[in-house]
Amino acid sequence: TKENNIITYYCKTISHRFQKLFINIQFFLKMCILVREFKTVPLVWVFSKMTIFNLYIFDRNGTCLYYTEWNRRNQSGISKEEEFKLMYGMILSIKSFCSRLSPTDLKDGFLSYRTSKYKLHFYETASGLKFILNTDINAGNMRDNIQQIYSNIYVENVIKNPECKLGQQITSELFQTKLDDYIRSLPQFATKLS
């Protein structure tokens, strides 16, 4: 009877261990499925808070053509016009700062900077149009995305639209909805996944 007891004890512990292992395997498989669903999205993006805060478009002369925000929690506390001036001034300063201090020949110039809480991406077109996109720090390189916004959304819906006067604020609803749809479709915009 003693041996029997020992055997049942072992059986119990073994089955218990197997159960644990089984649960672990199940968990692992679930994770695999989850990751597979976001095939193109690296694991970091699924488990970290990703978001896009806001977007500024400035023209060559420093006029803010368009501003929009999505998940901005902290307002600057000054009027929007003041904020645009501040932003444009800072970008201009950083640009000249970079070109002066660069030890080698600059190719693209200033691309982005990062603080502890957010990352600012900068893209300037040949015509002097400046795109400034703020995301959280986990968003990777947004250069291609901004290029997309410029070539597929700005050129198509603002430049080719005769009702949009150049060098003035963009009022076209079509442009606004296209831009909003595009930004919301980006994997970097995944606020709900965290």
């Binding site: 198509e156 819906n157 080719k160 639209n161 005769p162 009702e163 076209s172 609803e173 079509l174 909805t177």
Partner: peptide, 12 residues
């Protein structure tokens, strides 16, 4: 198509 997709700019 590039001007508007709705009621905006109808008068134009």
């Amino acid at each position: 198509t590039l001007i508007s997709q709705g009621k905006q700019y109808m008068d134009m």
